[in-house]
Write a protein that binds this DNA or RNA. Structure first.
Lengths: 147, 147
DNA sequence: CTTGAACCTACAGTTACTGTAGATAGTAGG
DNA sequence: CCTACTATCTACAGTAACTGTAGGTTCAAG
């Protein structure tokens, strides 16, 4: 890799959009890089490494605030690993919660589709199911509404 | 159920926030209800049924645009059920995609957590894994980045 | 009547990007 | 050098689906 890259080249190298890179700088996840005489951003390897860390954490589903915390911890090698562990466990719990929710939804959708008569809307089991409040109120999915 | 309800009572009855009800009216999913002399919204059973349909569809994960389409179809009983079926199948596909993505993430998080040494950040496998680009580039999860 | 709750509209915030407009900088080819 | 095109800049707004807040009006109970 070359010693210094413009933002577009960094975007290519990291598969992260130019606008997103600027966004991360704006919200403080990335430090402002050096600038050329023409005011173009000039990224060094450490900048790019940091961006890749961010992207990797985002890909793992960590919300930006958690990424911020992880970066802070990564910048503090003598800090306890416990905080990192906590963040990761919180995220794992969230992922498991989402999987459960989606799996239940999958089952419902499959049932609705299997019952679809292929005729007209007036006979439609999907529409009927969506409009069926007795069923709806008997389920716990309303009460368990997720974000 | 009483013949007519104010928005707050509808919100209670449907577990849908007042602001969200107003939002749905603003974006055209709900029709503007009658108004009292004091300009308060007055909801009838048909209004509430429509809101419950919307909530149910949202709970199933249908995006608002799809909910709009489903409502339109529900208002057209002689229309073909095929369109409804298509919407539901699209949503099912999306749910399956998300489950697959989350399940892969779960596995990764579990591996990272299992390797956490419980010492300091400098020995931390979570931080190391997030900063590990050789590993990162060898995986397909970067390429398969979801929204 | 008073007081507090419910309701109203208008506008902005949330999360994580993403796009657009108008202007400047950089580069390659003639 | 000139031209043309691409890349980059900042500022601001849009996206999806809500959600909150402010300031004002209406309603209901004591």
């Amino acid at each position: 890799m070359a010693q210094a890259l413009t933002i577009g080249r960094v975007a290519e190298a990291t598969q992260c959009k130019v606008q997103t890179i600027r966004y991360y700088e704006q919200i403080g996840l990335l430090r402002p890089p050096e600038r050329s005489q023409g005011n173009h951003r000039v990224y060094r390897k450490t900048d790019i490494d940091r961006l890749l860390f961010i992207r990797h954490a985002r890909d793992m589903g960590f919300p930006l605030e958690a990424v911020r915390d992880l970066l802070s911890l990564a910048d503090t090698p003598e800090a306890s690993c416990r905080a990192v562990d906590d963040i990761a466990r919180t995220q794992l719990g969230e992922v498991e919660r989402r999987i459960r929710r989606l799996t239940a939804l999958k089952g419902e959708l499959e049932r609705m589709i299997a019952q679809c008569s292929g005729g007209t809307v007036s006979d439609c089991r999907v529409i009927e199911a969506l409009g069926d409040h007795a069923h709806c109120e008997g389920d716990d999915h309303l009460a368990a509404r997720a974000g």
